[in-house]
């Protein structure tokens, strides 16, 4: 789904810009409550929220819940069917699928959520600069984003994984050494998160920039400017707080995309370093054995789909709750 969110809002910005959340300077406390109530009325969103919470809990509690160590191999039980000692069967190395699902959830969710930090770290400044300054700054930045959007994101992701890998792992000394350290401890997690994040910020930047562009014309911004507030202050104090709703929605909808991208990279063999599992690597390995022992691919696929479903439900619900007109 990579690019659909990137373009749609642009079409709709002119009709919008006066949405509830964007009218006042800071979002009013009463409004927050109303939004929350609206969210709770949306059954799909609540189901999504609960699923997400359960998944997070399961992933965090993986060491307590996993019936076997996730790397323990049983060569006499290769691709054993579900039931008996292994409730969800075993994989190609005779490892317990259930335990790996639990641990894999940690990796997939970590990539999905932490990559948003990278996305926001790049996307927000670009969006703020383009949206606030407008004119040639906006032109240059958005042209750049357009060009990058024309390059398939899988290419980006592949190039970034190989590049970042070289960068992070080569950095034994130097300013990136600490990243390399974490990466080694976390079996290459840093590389994946960075690559997925570097690939995903374009859509977010575009979306937020649209909103900022609309906000810039608002009276309170003009007012702030007239009393001599500098651009940084306006951005930090007036613009950013007013796009938090949009950011929350965007992030929620961007998480499943990151999870999906991690899975696609894993499918191409560029994922996490073994023996740590991710749902993507489990699917990639399982697909090879799909014909006779589909359980090894079905289990992670269902969980992956359910996770993406849950985040999508939640994101839709949040969008409806914040601004019904934002939907699309």
């Amino acid at each position: 789904m990579p690019k659909e969110f990137a373009r749609l809002p642009e079409q709709r910005v002119p009709e919008r810009g006066t949405g509830e959340a964007a009218t006042g300077d800071h979002a009013r406390p009463g409004l927050r409550e109303a939004q929350f109530r609206r969210l709770l009325r949306n059954r799909a969103a609540v189901a999504g929220l609960l699923t997400v919470l359960i998944l997070l809990a399961l992933a965090l509690a993986a060491p307590l819940l996993a019936p076997h160590p996730f790397a323990e191999q049983h060569p006499e039980f290769i691709l054993a069917r579900p039931g008996g000692r292994f409730s969800l069967g075993t994989d190609g190395l005779g490892r317990d699928v259930l335990s790996r699902l639990l641990y894999g959830g940690r990796v997939s969710l970590a990539v999905g959520i932490l990559s948003q930090v990278v996305i926001l770290a790049i996307g927000l400044p670009v969006a703020l600069a383009a949206g606030y300054f407008g004119g040639w700054v906006d032109n240059v930045l958005m042209q750049g984003v357009d060009v990058l959007l024309a390059i398939p994101d899988l290419l980006f992701a592949i190039v970034f994984t190989t590049l970042v890998k070289g960068l992070v792992e080569g950095a034994r000394g130097g300013p990136l050494a600490w990243l390399g350290q974490i990466n080694r401890v976390a079996d290459g997690l840093v590389v994946i998160i960075a690559a997925v994040g570097l690939t995903g910020w374009l859509a977010t930047a575009r979306l937020v920039r649209g909103q900022i562009l609309a906000l810039r014309q608002q009276e309170f911004v003009e007012a702030a400017r007239s009393i001599g507030a500098g651009p940084w202050r306006i951005m930090a104090r007036h613009l950013l707080p007013n796009v938090t709703d949009l950011i929350i929605v965007t992030v929620t909808l961007s998480i499943p995309r990151s999870i999906f991208l991690e899975a696609a990279l894993s499918f191409l063999g560029l994922g996490i370093q073994p023996p740590l599992p991710s749902w993507g690597t489990m699917i990639a390995d399982g697909v090879q054995a799909m014909r006779f022992t589909p359980h090894a691919v079905v289990a992670p696929s269902i969980v992956l789909a359910a996770t993406m479903l849950a985040f999508n439900f939640l994101g839709d619900g949040l969008r409806d709750a914040y601004d019904p007109r934002m939907q699309g």
């Binding site: 191999q73 190395l93 560029l270 073994p274 023996p275």
Partner: peptide, 15 residues
Amino acid sequence: PNLAEDRVVAEALQQ
């Protein structure tokens, strides 16, 4: 290299 069998070999040797 990250090809499927090589990964199996690596993980088996590791254990």
